[in-house]
Design a binder for these strands. Structure first.
Lengths: 318, 318
DNA sequence: ACCAAGCGGTTATACGTATAAACGGAGGCG
DNA sequence: CGCCTCCGTTTATACGTATAACCGCTTGGT
């Protein structure tokens, strides 16, 4: 490439990076650019990383449970924002690894930051990452962590939001569905805790996603007056079972879902649901991250960015 | 690292990579391993890439429309399979770029393979990639491409599958919903073409995802006897509107969805749906990819791997 | 007339890795 | 005793980039 342009390799680098404290004549610049275009030159990211010591990568090793539609939306926007700050968001496999082995596979890429489910982190893993040049490790969790700053998906707030609406509608005996499903059960627990913050006596309703299970719940004589069904899919399952059992919704039992899916308006009665708005956070998070990487800001364990902002959308089911 | 172990840097490399044609005594090996563990040594991926010329990365720059749940499942499995073959799957942002600019941003990572929506590729882009060391460019498309081998999501087969079932059920005047929604409209067109392969006179029903639109369709006097509703969500929208309009499903109009969502069984009538089985393909695709990268196999334009294997699941709506 | 300063470049080096080639020592064979 | 072979290890080099240091030339100031 340097040969093709008839200049030294250093000059090429100066021109292509628009290095401000390098002095290169305009005609040489043109020669270099022309040669670059002619050869289809593409800089080598690994060589650049090796030289500079920083990769500009922001790693997001996803746990399976996170790959919901809402989180995917968040990631898309987050990636755009990061690009604007000169970072590159990378979703990186390795879903099975945890702790130090996981940290090693991430550290190999020398990422600027890692955004990962806090349950996959250990003290040793975080130390390994930071000692290998990663400036920021951010956890995804439902509450602050003693290990790292976290982005919270505040499931308790979701539950509390639903419960407040149910109480406000005059229902006093509440229940909350906890899905019996690998990966989302923990979120279910957190949402239940949120419900109980507002309605201490709220009943826990364990439920797997099957019509038989739902029918069994619906057949109970002592149903709560208001149920937060974890999300819209479980709400639809439950309402369907209640109707089959002759229970009127919302007259006998009010039901609240979450996620505010488009199909939530198709149910009869139309589903009342907790809506999330993750559109604002990606920009804030990207900016925060850049400040930390630049060293302009310190973010330690305990720091928190709230990711979802729950808000009730009232329709007919509650 | 080499100093810490008291040996040369070359020896370290030999030991840590278990290089078979290097001769190192067992006690030296042990010293190196011990030092590596003590220092928390993590190899530098960029240096390795720079040296070897191959990164082992398989890039999947996603177009927004692809990020459905089914495709995510596919990617998860595909990533696992690739890991088994020594590759690393990376979902890489840059959703807005196309053609040569996109190819440049991908080529910077010197990936072994790129799996990308064929609509984002051009001849020049493919050339740029292959000339920069990428061995395989695989497109995602709904039909074979003159540019690259493709993984087809055979939407025509989906439509044909639904139409055959409807015809077999005695419905002769068919219709197919084409969603008016950015990103999935093209798939809708393809599925319509599939329906028409089996039922040439099938009517095209354009539909946005709103209850008003659906109600307008449902109010028509000359409804087809059988409708393929593009997917389950549109099917639920449509059925809901039909019922509100007093049209009986399936007696007056039969409706088939696609995706076989869990909630599809909650509708009354239970939804008949086209089911996809993407579980087998990731392994095959990963193996194929490895053979090509190794040079044991040639795969040119026109080659095709079928990703989804449509199959009708009969319930009550059709 | 001579030195300092500015300009437009080149040379040299380092990053961490993989691997070919060289090397010293021990042992076997003629 | 000299030579070849095998073993265990070190030396040297290259990958592509960024940047500090250097160098020759012109120009302006005194």
């Amino acid at each position: 490439m340097a040969r093709a342009a008839g200049v030294s390799q250093a000059t090429v680098s100066y021109v292509l990076n628009d290095n401000p404290n390098a002095r290169v004549s305009e005609q040489t610049r043109e020669r270099v650019r022309e040669a670059a275009a002619r050869l289809g030159y593409v800089p080598d990211a690994s060589a650049r990383t090796l030289r500079t010591g920083r990769s500009g990568l922001v790693l997001v090793p996803l746990a399976p449970a996170r790959t919901g539609r809402l989180f995917q939306d968040f990631l898309d926007r987050f990636g755009d924002e990061l690009g604007r700050h000169g970072f590159t968001l990378v979703q990186y496999g390795e879903r099975h690894l945890k702790g130090v082995p996981a940290a090693k596979s991430w550290a190999a890429l020398r990422p600027a930051a890692v955004l990962v489910d806090v349950t996959r982190l250990t003290k040793a893993a975080v130390d390994l990452l930071t000692s290998s040049g990663t400036r920021v490790v951010i956890g995804l969790a439902d509450k602050p962590s003693p290990l790292v700053p976290v982005v919270v998906l505040d499931h308790e707030a979701v539950g509390a939001c639903a419960a407040r609406h149910l109480l406000g509608g005059g229902r006093s005996r509440l229940g909350a569905v906890v899905p019996r499903e690998e990966g989302i059960d923990l979120m279910g627990e957190a949402r239940l805790r949120g419900v109980r913050q507002v309605a201490p006596g709220a009943e826990r309703i364990d439920l797997a996603f099957s019509e038989e299970e739902a029918a069994r719940v619906a057949a109970r004589a002592d149903l709560p007056e208001g149920i937060f069904a974890y999300n819209d899919e479980y709400a639809m399952l439950l309402i369907s079972a209640l109707q089959d059992a002759g229970v009127r919704v919302p007259d006998d039992v009010a039901v609240v879902g979450a996620d505010d899916l488009p199909i939530a308006t198709l149910m009869r009665p139309r589903l009342t649901s907790v809506h999330f708005d993750p559109t604002a956070t990606p920009g804030e998070l990207a900016a925060l991250l850049e400040e930390i990487v630049r060293g302009e800001r310190e973010a330690g364990p305990g720091a928190v960015v709230d990711l979802y902002r729950p808000r009730i959308v009232v329709r007919d089911s509650a």
